[in-house]
Amino acid sequence: CHSECLGNCSQPDDPTKCVACRNFYLDGRCVETCPPPYYHFQDWRCVNFSFCQDLHHKCKNSRRQGCHQYVIHNNKCIPECPSGYTMNSSNLLCTPCLGPCPKVCHLLEGEKTIDSVTSAQELRGCTVINGSLIINIRGGNNLAAELEANLGLIEEISGYLKIRRSYALVSLSFFRKLRLIRGETLEIGNYSFYALDNQNLRQLWDWSKHNLTITQGKLFFHYNPKLCLSEIHKMEEVSGTKGRQERNDIALKTNGDQASCENELLKFSYIRTSFDKILLRWEPYWPPDFRDLLGFMLFYKEAPYQNVTEFDGQDACGSNSWTVVDIDPPLRSNDPKSQNHPGWLMRGLKPWTQYAIFVKTLVTFSDERRTYGAKSDIIYVQTDATNPSVPLDPISVSNSSSQIILKWKPPSDPNGNITHYLVFWERQAEDSELFELDYCLKGLKLPSRTWSPPFESEDSQKHNQSEYEDSAGECCSCPKTDSQILKELEESSFRKTFEDYLHNVVFVPRKT
């Protein structure tokens, strides 16, 4: 048989008469490798580009789960590009990614509803959504962080984005990388972005840091009482949809009607710091009717980097990364020049730590249904340095008659930039024990000054392991946590139920 035959053949030295091919099969003959313009397919066939392209389009058009959109890589027609490569849609070739590779997620039936953290986790790592997304989240724990972890990498949506009755959302900033909504599939009414009845939605994105392009379709905003109209108009300008909307697409009466839409800028007039305090004062603000001013709200939190936005980490279910302080308005003076500047002394802060701070007014709604208010920009203030805590785990070892090696770990709280350490030492008198000992005694162990690591005695271990207080009263049991108490109650309830079950099964009433 021919060298490319495997198993047997019907005619000697003829690659077209093989029972099976050793390498690849091409047009009725066995070959060692697939010549151009053919590609290896499933490690035994040679196919042309049209064959591989037909497989790709067949799966793409069917949208069946589990099928493969075949691509070409290293002269092979394979189910998908290997790690580190992405497909070129024009020629199906796998090309190296520039940075992290995109991950295209194809949605069944063309859309997916995100109504819980669990459903959001199914899209973790996706960068391109081939379909439409509907966000409908009523509640949950730590929602802002969970949504950002699972949806934060999405850069492109081919269909539309719909935010509907998501009472738990305060902001859409968890879509931190969303840059493009194509609108290839539109919501009824030709809408590519749809926001309806979101009672706590206050911000779409921080438009000073976020760009969003909507290729096709219109915007729809109705019944978002805490979303200011200025935020919607800003989205029109940034996304390129200005002029597409009709009169009733953006409701003037049901958007922002319960919001404090600040239209003035508060400026800080005085800032002073110490290692654990920050004193702030800002310019006074009074609405047209000074009785509408209820006070100020001061927001602050630790910020290692200057990239904080107002609604980071917030949701309507209680999660809030900001510390909020309510401040009463100052006494009002008739003389504008003698107006008191409101302020606040922030206490209990960490030394040498940068804080993000902003302040906003708290006002009631005027009778004319106009909203007044003022808010400052987010500023960054760093507390002063102070003395560091003591170095940890000092170790001293003498390696000769004239040297001592000293080692330690950095302090747990540096409280500033540590530039150097101060080492103090003092000579001590020799131990009298060394002169009084009889060095001729056998088995004498000389006193040693070398360091030995501390260890816990058996008594201390027994005390720590004991669940009861000892007789001397030195140790006591740790208080039980809520989960331990709940577990004990469940076990007790189970024992009672099981005992009742045994009584009912074992003891049967005697027939009379």
Rank of each mutant, 00 (worst) to 15 (best):
I357N: 00
S376T: 07
N224L: 13
S239W: 07
E109R: 15
S158L: 13
K112A: 14
D315V: 10
Y300T: 14
P391A: 15
S274R: 14
G243A: 09
F221G: 03
I163L: 04
G343Q: 13
K242M: 08
R124V: 02
L133W: 00
N141E: 11
H233K: 13
P342H: 05
W352A: 06
Q306H: 15
L169R: 00
S274N: 02
R176P: 06
F268A: 05
Q245D: 00
P411F: 00
T309F: 07
N141W: 10
D257V: 09
Y160G: 12
I163P: 00
L180G: 08
L279M: 04
K409P: 02
E236K: 09
E111S: 10
N136M: 11
L169V: 07
Q203T: 04
Q121T: 05
N255W: 06
C317M: 02
S158W: 13
G139N: 06
S398P: 05
R247H: 09
S171T: 07
L108T: 08
T309Q: 13
G373N: 08
E155L: 08
K337G: 09
R247A: 09
L294G: 05
R370M: 09
G131N: 02
D206K: 13
T383K: 00
E122I: 05
L362H: 14
I188M: 08
T127L: 09
S269R: 12
G110D: 05
T371V: 12
V381R: 14
F268K: 00
W286S: 10
S398I: 05
Q382E: 12
D367A: 05
S401M: 06
E237P: 05
C228H: 14
G152I: 01
K337L: 09
N307W: 12
D249K: 04
K350M: 10
W344E: 04
L266T: 06
R179H: 14
K242Y: 02
N200T: 02
T353F: 13
R369G: 10
I232S: 03
I271S: 05
I137L: 08
T254M: 10
E187R: 08
P284K: 15
Y300D: 00
D206N: 06
K267I: 14
L151Y: 01
K301N: 15
I114W: 01
S402V: 03
C228T: 02
V359M: 05
T118E: 13
V238F: 15
A144Q: 12
D335K: 09
K277I: 15
Q306F: 13
D328A: 13
P411S: 14
Q339F: 14
P288K: 09
K253G: 09
H210R: 05
K360W: 09
E368F: 14
L294Q: 05
S192C: 06
C228I: 03
K103V: 07
N142V: 06
I404M: 06
I188Y: 07
T323V: 15
D206W: 07
G373T: 05
T273S: 08
Q258R: 05
V170K: 06
S171P: 00
K162S: 12
R281K: 10
E231G: 14
N130L: 13
I214T: 12
A195S: 06
I379R: 11
A120N: 01
F174D: 01
Y223C: 15
E262R: 10
L406N: 07
V128C: 09
W344Q: 13
Y285E: 02
I129L: 11
I114E: 00
Q199T: 08
P388T: 00
L252P: 13
D393C: 15
L133E: 01
L265R: 13
M297K: 01
A385T: 14
I271R: 02
F358D: 03
Y194G: 07
C126S: 01
S338N: 06
L392R: 11
T213Q: 13
P288Q: 06
W344L: 13
N340F: 11
K234E: 15
L345A: 07
L293Q: 05
T273I: 10
F175H: 02
D377V: 08
E156S: 09
S173M: 13
L294F: 09
T383A: 02
V325G: 09
T371S: 10
R164T: 15
D249F: 08
N141K: 12
A316M: 09
K350V: 08
T371P: 08
V128L: 15
H233R: 07
E155R: 14
L186M: 10
L204V: 09
S260E: 10
N224V: 02
L169F: 11
R291K: 01
I395S: 06
R247Q: 13
N387M: 15
Q339P: 10
A316H: 00
T185M: 06
V117F: 15
K350S: 07
C317H: 11
L294E: 05
I278V: 15
L266Y: 02
G373M: 05
R124Q: 04
C317T: 01
Q199G: 06
K209C: 14
L108C: 03
S158Q: 07
T213D: 10
E302Q: 15
E148I: 09
V359K: 01
T323W: 15
L147R: 02
Q203D: 06
G217M: 01
R347C: 09
E109H: 15
I163R: 01
Q121I: 03
T113F: 07
Y380P: 00
Q245V: 07
L153G: 13
A144I: 14
Y194D: 12
Q199I: 10
R370H: 02
T361F: 15
R281P: 00
P329A: 14
H341G: 13
K209V: 07
T213K: 10
H106M: 07
D206V: 07
Q203K: 12
E368A: 10
D289Q: 02
L392D: 14
T215E: 15
M297L: 12
K253R: 08
N334W: 05
R244S: 08
D393N: 04
L298W: 02
G125Y: 14
I278T: 08
G110R: 10
R281T: 08
K301S: 09
L143S: 03
G125R: 07
Y300I: 11
Q314P: 02
Y355E: 00
G217P: 03
V170M: 09
S119M: 08
L161A: 05
K267R: 13
D326K: 00
F268W: 09
V381F: 02
Y355K: 01
Q121R: 03
P342K: 10
F268R: 00
F193E: 00
R281N: 14
S269V: 06
V359E: 00
Q354M: 01
L293P: 01
Y300L: 10
T113P: 09
T273E: 13
I379V: 09
A145I: 04
N136S: 04
R179W: 12
N200Q: 14
W207R: 04
S158R: 10
E236C: 07
G131P: 01
W282C: 15
K253N: 09
E231F: 10
S321P: 09
W207H: 13
L331V: 11
K242N: 12
F311K: 03
L279I: 06
T309R: 11
W282N: 02
Q216K: 01
Q403P: 00
R138S: 05
K267F: 09
G256P: 05
E122G: 15
L252Q: 03
N141H: 06
T353Y: 08
S398V: 02
Q121S: 03
I137A: 14
S208R: 13
P388M: 00
P351W: 05
N307A: 07
D197R: 05
Q258A: 09
V117G: 13
A385L: 04
K103G: 12
N399F: 10
